[in-house]
Design a protein around this nucleic acid. Structure first.
Length: 414
RNA sequence: GCGACCGUAGCUCAGUUGGUUAGAGCGCUGGUUUGUGGUACCAGAGGUCGGGGGUUCAAGACCCCUCGGUCGCCCCA
């Protein structure tokens, strides 16, 4: 009989359990609580979308679209893609469901995303994000609300120190285009000193040269034309209103004129919450305004802002949540006592206590196992009767007591 | 896509310049001890040394390929 080889997990995916899972769940639960404080509605979206949803909105030339998407043909011959990000799918849902009627909409989602990349710390092929968007709001107040919410979320997760908000503006479309043209001209004049990576970026994504890590690029990048010189009056006012709002709300930020976004659809506000505690993957939460996106998908001109944060990255930064211990652990130390144990355990659980019953293995070792569950109250059922202790938790102790008394009374009536 | 390091029981690891039947701790199973006690002791199960090929009288150790992991580059959350 040939033993079959157990298939492995797909590269870059994770099976989360124990502390890893608890950290993850804690991040999601905190997000769900905070987003309600700001009136964001929940949303559940498909994981698969027509490929065009992403190729049209992210930009064909971006790495995400050109080499990182999980794209396949389904049995009907349609090109389908596992979502690599949330925003495009939300925009698609907004249009196909006629949600213009609800605008402005404050929406939140979380779930798995897929990108075919080389896995490393804080980077997976199936990864998870929390995401918040405001669609149909053109005012800087929307940008402010999202940033204040992000700030509160990080504070409630207890990871705000060591994480800083970096803020920039990319201007409106004319500003951005003028700046971009100036940058391309400038970098072309300095081609001879640019790194190889940046020469490639010059063709595909010249803004990215600004935040190059290569020391060779730094002097040129640092002396490059700045967006401020190309901002229209309107764009300046917009950015001024955003920063004023943040200051009023007490959110700390720093200007980073080299901060750009990877995807083509961003305009005006761009931001990242950055940490140095995650190695190479420093961005913990990022986003900005994407007023052009919905038009790219064939909809009416619709202003929108949003951000997304990697749940795995946040989970790595939070303190380990206290692990969940049962209220009561019941050790059945005598084989014939099992039915009695079942009765007590069921009654305790119905009274709302979490209970772990230890009835397997050597009867003499079950008490040790019960102790090791760290339960608040440890109960032993043996031929010597029912005994339990747990003075440190008087509430649980007295609830257990009540349940046992009621069982005793019930038995007396028979 | 590029680079570096790594891959030995369920887990964490040891394994000497290649040299007999591959080890420890924890965990697991059974037993003894203790008897309101997270104890101690005994015994046991569990490994084609990631997989494939090669060098050699001899490979867990060396070489090649491959698959995975980790961390960088790139990209991004």
């Amino acid at each position: 009989m040939a033993k079959i080889q157990t298939p492995q997990a797909v590269r870059g995916t994770q099976d989360m359990f124990g502390e890893t899972e608890e950290r993850f769940a804690h991040v999601v639960a905190t997000f769900e609580r905070v987003r309600r404080l700001y009136g964001f509605k929940g949303l559940q979206l498909p994981v698969i979308e027509p490929t065009a949803v992403f190729s049209r909105s992210l930009g064909e030339a971006t790495d995400v679209v050109s080499k990182e998407m999980y794209t396949f043909e389904d049995r009907g011959g349609d090109s389908i893609t596992l979502r690599p990000e949330f925003t495009a799918g939300i925009a698609r849902a907004y249009l196909t469901n006629g949600w213009q009627q609800y605008a402005p909409m404050k929406l939140s989602v979380h779930g798995p995303l897929f990108r075919y990349e080389r896995p490393q710390k804080g980077r997976y092929r199936q990864f998870h994000q929390i995401d918040a968007e405001i669609i149909g709001a053109a005012e800087p107040a929307a940008d402010v609300e999202l940033l204040v919410m992000a700030d509160q979320l990080l504070k409630e997760l207890g990871i705000d120190d060591g994480v800083t908000l970096q803020l920039n503006t990319l201007g409106d479309t004319p500003s951005r285009d003028a700046w971009r043209t100036a940058l391309v001209g400038y970098f072309n004049d300095h081609k001879d000193v640019l790194s190889e990576d940046s020469l490639a970026r010059l063709e595909k994504n010249p803004l990215r040269i600004l935040d190059s890590k290569d020391p060779k690029d730094r002097p040129v990048a640092d002396a490059a034309p700045v967006i401020d010189d190309y901002l229209s009056g309107e764009a300046q006012d917009f950015f001024g209103a955003v920063t004023a709002g943040l200051d009023a709300a007490g959110v700390a930020w720093t200007r980073n004129a080299a901060l750009v976004r990877g995807l083509d659809y961003y305009r005006h506000t761009a931001f990242e919450f950055v940490t140095d505690r995650l190695g190479a993957q420093g961005t913990v939460l990022g986003g900005g305004r994407y007023d052009g996106l919905i038009e790219n998908l064939g909809g009416p001109a619709t202003p929108a802002v949003g951000w997304a944060a990697g749940i795995e990255r946040l989970a790595m930064l939070v303190e380990a949540p206290a692990s969940i211990v049962p209220d009561v652990a019941v050790a059945i130390e005598f084989r014939d006592a099992e039915p009695q144990g079942q009765k007590i355990v069921a009654a305790l659980r119905r009274s709302g206590l979490s209970v772990e019953m230890l009835a397997q293995g050597s009867p003499k070792k079950r008490y040790d196992k019960a102790i090791k569950t760290n339960a608040k109250v440890v109960m032993s059922i043996s031929d010597m009767g029912v005994r339990y202790s747990g003075d440190k938790y008087p509430d649980v102790f007295s609830q257990v007591n009540e349940v046992l008394v009621s069982i005793a009374e019930e038995l007396k009536k028979r």
